[in-house]
Simulated scan of single mutants.
Amino acid sequence: MHSVILIPARYPSVRFPGKPLALLTGATGEARSLIRRSWDAAREVSGVDGVYVLTDDDRIAEASRAFGAEVLMTSDAPRNGTERCAEALDLLPSMPDVVVNLQGDAPLTPPHYVEALVEAMADASVEMATPVLRTEPHHLEALRADRKAGRVGATTAIFREDGTAIYFSKEVLPFADRAAETGIPVFHHVGCYAYRPDALRRYAAWDMGPLETAEGLEQLRFLENGVPVRCVEVEARGRAFWELNNPSDIPLIEDIMRREGIA
């Protein structure tokens, strides 16, 4: 399959303005921008035919071109990364079979997460897929700590036995105390998506629904419009995963990079 990775990035943010240009210091002491580290992560994925940064901001575009990224300039109309990916379809040099949205706030995404998504798209019935990671006790506690502190952070997913998504939420689902009693796992949703181009075009034509609006989660628009979302369980393989949602996440991510030797 012909597949590409798109990294949507925007400058305005309620929680963290200018987040793509925030600096993260790795194991060697070198500070690189978040958008650079996201691009670095995308370049580690095997079997894809191109990696592009999508933005409507000249500052992000200039910084991205400076480290060698190919940039596609979109309008300022997209309200989320999926809409930005849909707009970028007409800017690509050729139409891919699979579009991967590697969100620009997840520089710790291991390449095998993305490779698992592309592999899942080999099933022609799958229109959209996204990775989920079974939480370990310390991981789950970090999710719960964010909610207790009132921080809007990571997302959890619940899905059927066949991997079809039931719901995604910024709350810890299922109810974590009861889940611990019954042994039901809590799955951290990894903010990365693979789509068919046709599914992306249909997405852009739909209005935001009440669930997407309430949760602030773009993938819920697919569920609200009856499009199944395939959750692909991935294994940590010794890699820690965390997203940069708030400024307070920077030292957490830098600590992970130092422990794992990420330059």
Rank of each mutant, 00 (worst) to 15 (best):
K148A: 15
E141V: 04
E127P: 00
V118W: 13
R151K: 08
L108T: 04
M121Q: 09
H138W: 01
T109D: 11
T135W: 09
L143Y: 03
T156L: 02
T135M: 02
P137T: 02
L133C: 06
T135G: 07
H112P: 05
D146R: 11
A124P: 07
E141F: 05
R144F: 07
E127L: 08
E127T: 05
K148E: 12
A154W: 08
A145H: 05
A124S: 15
A149H: 01
P131R: 08
R134K: 15
T130I: 06
P107C: 05
F159H: 10
G153C: 08
V132F: 01
V132D: 12
A145D: 11
L117Y: 15
G150A: 08
M128T: 15
V132R: 09
T135P: 05
V126Y: 03
V152I: 09
E141L: 13
A124D: 13
G153T: 09
E119C: 14
V118K: 15
T156W: 00
T156K: 00
T109G: 06
Y113S: 04
V118Q: 08
L108C: 06
L108Q: 12
R151N: 03
V114G: 05
P111V: 01
L143T: 07
L117D: 13
V152E: 11
Y113G: 04
A122E: 13
